[in-house]
């Protein structure tokens, strides 16, 4: 507990203090004070754009993960015992290999002349070059890929606890296809989807590695801007204000979660 206090709470408190001070980027001396100037400069279009982009990328990646996770989890649940464990391992094992390498792998696939481009060419879907690497789309693909298991696992757990007779009853009553997925499976998977949305959405918003590699350092997210402020520019107090902003976003996401659960119940 003491360790937590010293190495976790104290630094966080220091971030809050720094964010209210000002750092001279010439002398790197920080003057502590009670100024909101760092927060007002967050309003400049450059930083607002970054925050907006982080939220947008994170939200769309989370949504894509959810759309993919429901059929994948349902597919796994509908298998027999042994196959089910094997498929579950097939989801977990890649997640445990290096995140960095898995993201890097996509540069091999997405680059011009790479695997995706030639596959699309063979299918006759593409004639020019792909030009997707180092764009926001590439970052979104990377985030979806990187965090998909974190959505599949909670959805799986939610579906696995289900009473099979409920699904059987729905089938007997004539629910098939899209109706069955949308009206029966998705509502039942909802607790897993909410948990997964947090597990994916929160780290995705603060993502640092993916935009560096698949965005080529051109499309920046909040995590990258914080790193630049701290390590390259040396404006510690402005960097702290950005970090506080990220903390605030995380807190809002955590607060929204119980609301979501309640809305559905009524």
């Amino acid at each position: 507990m003491l360790l937590v206090a010293v190495f976790f709470l104290a630094p966080l408190a220091l971030i809050a203090v720094y964010s209210l001070g000002t750092t001279s980027i010439v002398t790197f001396v920080t003057h502590f004070g009670w100024t909101l100037s760092n927060y007002t400069s967050l309003r400049s279009s450059l930083y607002l754009g970054t925050i907006e982009r982080s939220l947008l990328l994170s939200a769309s990646a989370t949504l894509a993960c959810a759309v993919l996770a429901v059929p994948i989890a349902f597919f796994i649940v509908s298998q027999r015992g042994r196959t089910q464990v094997l498929l579950l391992l097939a989801v977990i094992v890649p997640f445990w290999t290096s995140f960095l390498i898995r993201i890097y792998a996509w540069t091999n696939i997405l680059q011009n002349g790479g695997l995706l481009e030639s596959a699309l060419r063979h299918l006759g879907l593409l004639h020019g070059s792909l030009n997707v690497l180092y764009t926001p789309t590439a970052i979104a693909i990377g985030i979806v890929y990187g965090y998909l298991p974190l959505m599949v696992l909670p959805v799986y757990v939610a579906l696995e606890r289900l009473d099979p007779t409920v699904l059987e009853a729905a089938e007997d009553l004539g629910s098939h296809g899209w109706h069955f997925m949308w009206r029966i499976v998705v509502p039942l998977a909802r607790p897993g989807l909410i948990a997964g949305a947090l597990l994916v959405g929160i780290p995705a918003t603060g993502e640092f590695v993916t935009p560096q590699i698949l965005g080529g350092g051109k499309t920046l997210m909040l995590g990258n801007v914080i790193a630049t402020q701290f390590l390259d520019i040396g404006n510690l107090s402005f960097g702290s204000a950005l970090a506080m902003c990220l903390i605030a976003i995380v807190i809002v996401m955590l607060l929204v979660q119980p609301l979501l659960r309640r809305v559905r119940r009524t």
Binding site: Q79, A90, I101
Partner: peptide, 29 residues
């Protein structure tokens, strides 16, 4: 739950999803 009639699209996305998770790793290797 094998008695549930599986929608072919669900099976397709399920299989593709798991391939999607392994493909980049194979590409690296």
């Amino acid at each position: 739950m094998t008695f549930i009639r599986k929608h072919p699209l669900v099976t397709l996305i399920g299989v593709l999803g798991i391939v999607f998770m392994w493909l980049p790793i194979f590409v690296v290797v």
